[in-house]
Write a protein that binds this DNA or RNA. Structure first.
Length: 582
RNA sequence: GCGCCCUUAGCUCAGAUGGAUAGAGCACGAGACUUCUAAUCUUGAGGCCGGUGGUUCGAAUCCACCAGGGCGCGCCA
């Protein structure tokens, strides 16, 4: 028994089509799909096979559909097949065949929907916020989307590594080190020296938030007055590393509050120190893709201080980018892009041929060049880099946007958001939107205990299911239950939804769109609530029927399977199921 | 000026890789409700899928152009 019933029926369609039309090219066969019917009047599934094959077979779609119908109705498990519309073949399964899936779900439990092991490694990198402060709301979407996407792809059968790239090289962490020193002087009670030092730093002190005060104090506890009045060369590295370590602790705590955990933290600084950048660029150099040249100014927007400069360039245009991209600054040091090339080269060196990066939309301009670099680095063995962009989140409260401004002091840290609505609501709501569309996060709706709140709606469905099972007490042998009594439209609709779960996992994983899982759960919850509500009008549809043990058992099997699929889906989203609503 | 993303009901958004009559929730209208499994339920109305052309059996989906919004555009990461 194939878990994915649609794939199972599709294999029948392919066999029957190939038998009827032996010459069909494989690319045509590949376009044949078997999908859930949108309308129950169209049966359980529909296939486009006849329409796809019309041209190569040289027949009109309805003729082909008629032939396919003749073949399909001979299959055990198919109750009815009929041609419809422009050439669809609608398939209605034998009730028994459909119902067989329930014991499959009961046996698989939360693992239902788990794809077969693809034997492929995928690296997914997300968050990767600079280690200069706590996470804010802007990071949150990437964290949730990346984490759910990683879970989803693992569910689809891939070997997934969750990775965080620490930007601990470059100007920002040097600035961090200086602030640590500034706070260190303050912690020692040397306010005058601290102010004098701050005034001496070109560009002034950054990261003014109070969160670095305890870091300075800890640094003072470690070094005492030993570093006072010493030049930067004697303390900057130590202050920087100390600050980065503390900030990473902070970030890890924030992520833990959101229930986001990583398999690997990868340090840019370590990569640079170990010669990674040289290694990465050498690959491109050997391929003849690095050259010295002068870029044209961007058309229509020449910067005031533009002057033609010769720099080291990567021939990104050879791989689909619009212009070649600099890998070295005019002073000879590497650009950020050079380090990113090196980082991706390092991932590939570690054996990943499939990579996914989750970025903020403000990095959208870097997608082409990074993908070009990966293609160039790949050489003979193909490698892919998918980039998922996350758009801005506007936080709304009482109908008005919550302004996020450091200066105004209304800067919303991730922790504030989690404290206000909880990790489950944050995660679920962040996943109710396609990641590359802007979204509004309504704080009021997120905590509402009503249908307005999708998190509540889904969790309530699970809690209701569990409540029925508690009320029913210990019932054994559900997997062997006689299910033939399950025939009400609401029951069948629910079963159809349950069996589409494995297919949903596959397609959402392939599209890299975890939000589809949130929508699936919302719909599944809706189907379950509909069945529950049907029992209000018609007592015969209630789950527990005192006088009818056989029907009750069948329904409890369905309820159990529903709860399992909801848990399976919530696990992908990283949302915890609840046993009861309080 | 160029590139990428977006534009679907009054509002917030889905739309399965090109399929059948474009869907949900909120808001709005009309009903139901002796807590039974009700932190409600049923039902109605609401649309030129930003616009114009094209591709084909078939387009919200793909292509071209246009309009509006967002992001970005050689020493910042």
């Amino acid at each position: 028994m194939t878990e994915n019933l649609f794939a199972h029926v599709r294999s029948w369609v392919l066999q029957d089509m190939s038998a009827a039309f032996p010459g069909l090219p494989t690319d045509v066969l590949a376009k044949i799909e078997v999908a859930p019917s949108r309308d129950a009047a169209h049966g359980d599934m529909a296939t486009n096979a006849a329409m796809v094959a019309a041209k190569p077979a040289g027949k009109n779609p309805r003729e082909i559909a008629a032939l396919l119908v003749d073949a399909l109705v001979k299959r055990a498990g198919i109750a009815k097949a009929e041609a419809a519309g422009p050439g669809f073949v609608n398939i209605t399964l034998e009730a028994a065949f459909l119902l067989q899936q329930i014991p499959v779900i009961l046996a698989a439990k939360e693992a239902y929907g788990q794809g077969t092991d693809k034997g492929q490694k995928i690296n997914i990198e997300y968050v990767s916020a600079n280690p200069t402060g706590p996470l804010h709301v802007g990071h949150c979407r990437g964290a949730v989307v990346g984490d759910a996407l990683a879970n989803l792809i693992a569910k689809a059968g891939y070997d997934v590594t969750k990775e965080y790239y620490i930007n601990d090289a470059g100007a920002q962490v040097i600035a961090l080190g200086r602030v640590v020193y500034f706070r260190y002087l303050q912690a020692l009670g040397l306010a005058d020296k601290a102010d004098a030092y701050a005034a001496s730093v070109p560009g002034g002190m950054q990261y003014g938030g109070a969160y670095l005060e305890p870091v300075g104090a800890a640094f003072a506890a470690l070094h005492g007055t030993a570093l006072v009045d010493k030049p930067e060369s004697e303390w900057l590295d130590a202050a920087r590393q100390f600050g980065v370590a503390k900030m990473l602790d902070l970030i890890r705590d924030d992520l833990a509050a959101l229930r986001v955990y990583f398999d690997v933290f990868s340090s840019e600084d370590a990569l640079v120190q170990s010669g990674g950048v040289t290694r990465g660029l050498a690959i491109l150099e050997q391929a003849g893709l690095i050259y010295r040249g002068v870029l044209e100014p961007p058309k229509g927007k020449t910067p005031d201080d533009w002057e033609p400069r010769e720099q080291l360039l990567f021939r990104a245009t050879a791989y689909g980018d619009d212009v070649d991209r600099p890998v070295a600054k005019s002073d000879g040091s590497n650009t950020y892009f050079a380090n990113d090339i090196a980082y991706h080269a390092d991932k590939m060196r570690r054996g990943y041929r499939q990579m996914i990066d989750v970025w903020g939309a403000d990095h959208g301009g870097y997608v082409k060049r990074m993908q070009a670099a990966v293609k160039a680095l790949a050489g003979e063995t193909p490698a892919s880099l998918d980039i998922v962009l996350c758009q801005i989140v506007r936080v709304m409260k009482d109908g008005a946007p919550v302004r996020m401004s450091k200066r105004a002091g209304t800067f919303v840290e991730l922790r504030d958001l989690i404290d206000e609505v909880g990790p489950d609501a944050v995660r679920f709501i962040m996943l109710m939107r396609k990641s590359d569309a802007q979204m509004e996060f309504d704080l009021n709706a997120a905590v509402a205990q009503t249908r307005d709140n999708p998190v509540f709606y889904v969790q309530y469905a699970h809690a209701r299911a569990r409540s029925v099972l508690r009320a029913a007490g210990e019932v054994t042998g559900l997997a062997q239950a006689d299910l033939t009594s399950l025939a009400a439209p609401e029951e069948l609709a629910l079963i159809r939804k349950l069996i589409s779960w494995p297919r949903m996992v596959d397609s959402a994983a392939e599209a890299r769109e975890p939000h589809r899982i949130a929508f699936f759960l919302y719909e599944l919850a809706g189907d379950f609530h509909a069945l529950w509500n049907a029992g209000r009008d018609d007592a015969a549809l209630r789950f527990i029927q005192a006088e009818k043990p056989v029907e009750t058992k069948a329904r409890l099997a369905l309820v159990t399977a529903t709860a399992m699929v909801i848990r399976s889906g919530l696990a992908v989203l990283g949302v915890q199921p609840v046993e009861e609503m309080r």
